[in-house]
Simulated scan of single mutants.
Amino acid sequence: MLTTQRRALISARLARDGEIVAKRLADELDLSEDTIRRDLREMAAEGLLKRVHGGALPLVPPLPNFAARQEIAGDVKRRLGRKAATMIEAGQTIFLDGGTSNAEIARSLPREMRLTVVTHSPTIAAELERHEAEVILIGGRLYKHSMVATGAAALAAIASIRVDLFFLGVTAIHPAHGVSTGDFEEAAVKRAILKQAADTYVLATAEKFGAVSPHRVAGIADLAGFIVAEEIEDGVLAPYDDANIAMIKA
């Protein structure tokens, strides 16, 4: 097999499976593992993939900072936020993760609705200033990139709270590798919240599907469902059909 053919195959497998295991691919192609590792090194040097121990992962584009993300897909995020808000009932305790999509949930909540909103995002807490909702703001070390609290203090506070709904923010969604994000500490906080929630939903824009970020939060089956834009093509969502979770379109 020519080098160009191997590289094309590697790219296709990354898109399909979300990872390359060098030994497995070498055995499949009846090639030496060194040959595959060399291909992966060269492709990584050209910015085509990310090398990891034993293989490779797809590249995840650098995430824009919080201010920049507020300008991305604003109309879609507003629709998703409004749909999510209709799923919330008076008297519930909900947890809003950080992120620009979840900020739209806070903006869409009826101001007179009485419920408890827990969040570790000061920006989301500020959105609820004029609402009747009780707001519990989790503290800790501020991860400025996402404007959320992380660390031991945040984890300890989260462990004492049980919530009805958790709206989880992630940067990548993959049928085999689950939902993931780019920061180690932030991922740990998200996992802790998920354990305290009866149901967890993700507001998901199209570019997140089929991607993998470095730090796994949960498997697809750990979620209750996704809230997605109605114009997302069925082919993008098809790999999740067997996961037995809701795909709620907005």
Rank of each mutant, 00 (worst) to 15 (best):
Arg6Cys: 03
Ala8Gln: 11
Ile10Tyr: 12
Ile10Lys: 10
Ala12Val: 10
Arg13Gly: 04
Leu14Val: 09
Glu19Ile: 08
Val21Ile: 15
Ala22Thr: 08
Arg24Lys: 11
Leu25Thr: 07
Glu33Val: 07
Asp34Phe: 14
Ile36Gly: 15
Arg38His: 03
Arg38Trp: 04
Asp39Met: 11
Asp39Glu: 15
Asp39Ala: 09
Arg41Val: 04
Ala45Trp: 08
Glu46Pro: 09
Glu46Phe: 14
Gly47Trp: 10
Gly47Tyr: 12
Leu49Ser: 11
Val52Thr: 15
Gly54Trp: 01
Leu57Gln: 14
Leu57Ile: 10
Leu59Gln: 10
Val60Cys: 11
Asn65Asp: 15
Gln70Gly: 15
Gln70Met: 13
Ile72Ala: 09
Gly74Trp: 02
Val76Gln: 02
Arg78Asp: 09
Leu80Ile: 08
Ile88Asp: 01
Glu89Trp: 08
Ala90His: 10
Gly91Cys: 09
Gly98Met: 03
Ala103Val: 00
Glu104Cys: 01
Ala106Tyr: 00
Glu112Asn: 13
Met113Asn: 02
Leu115Cys: 05
His120Asn: 14
Pro122Ile: 05
Pro122Lys: 04
Ile124Asp: 00
Glu127Phe: 02
Glu132Cys: 08
Glu132Gln: 01
Val135Tyr: 00
Ile136Ala: 05
Ile136Arg: 15
Leu137Met: 15
Leu137Asn: 08
Ile138Cys: 03
Gly139Trp: 07
Leu142Val: 11
Tyr143Asp: 05
Ser146Lys: 03
Met147Trp: 03
Met147Asn: 02
Met147Pro: 02
Val148Met: 01
Ala157Asn: 08
Ile158Asp: 12
Ile158Arg: 09
Ala159Gln: 12
Ser160Thr: 12
Asp164His: 07
Leu168Lys: 00
Ile173Thr: 07
Pro175Ala: 10
Ala176Tyr: 14
Val179Arg: 04
Ser180Pro: 08
Ala187Phe: 11
Lys190Gln: 13
Arg191Pro: 10
Ala197Arg: 03
Ala197Lys: 06
Thr205Glu: 07
Thr205Met: 06
Lys208Arg: 09
Pro214Leu: 03
His215Gly: 14
Gly219Glu: 09
Ile220Val: 08
Asp222Cys: 05
Ile232Gln: 06
Val236Tyr: 07
Val236Leu: 12
Leu237Ile: 03
Pro239Asp: 02
Asp241Met: 13
Asp242Lys: 15
Met247Asn: 03
Ile248Tyr: 06
